[in-house]
């Protein structure tokens, strides 16, 4: 806990962590050929579709390609405020 607090105080990030996160980003692009522009338009379209069903916190939507070992995953974090879908009333 104390250690974590000190880490937070240590504002300047170590250059090795910067290197690692830069590399991870570069490699997602290298490996998939998907650049930031494509990810952005994916995020916009995805938000559009989901908005038909849910009330979203649009500014907080995050869509990212992540890599784990040999596989790749599309990870989306989409905060939902409410739903637009009504339960059909059963007769």
């Amino acid at each position: 806990m104390f250690r974590r607090l000190l880490q937070l105080l240590n504002r300047e990030q170590k250059s090795k962590s910067v290197a690692k996160s830069r590399l991870q980003l570069i490699l997602v692009q290298d490996r998939t050929g998907i650049d930031e522009e494509i990810m952005e338009s994916l995020q916009i379209e995805l938000t559009e579709v989901l908005s038909k069903y849910f009330i979203l916190e649009r500014e907080q939507v995050e869509v990212e390609l992540e890599r784990e070992q040999d596989s790749m995953a599309l990870v989306a974090n989409i905060p939902v405020l409410g739903t637009k879908v009504r339960h059909p009333v059963e007769a």
Partner: peptide, 18 residues
């Protein structure tokens, strides 16, 4: 440099290259 956090350590590189 690894010790001071200014060079990626082997585990960082292995993580990335798998």
């Amino acid at each position: 440099m690894v010790k001071t956090g200014d060079m990626m350590e082997p585990t960082d590189i292995i993580d990335i290259l798998s």
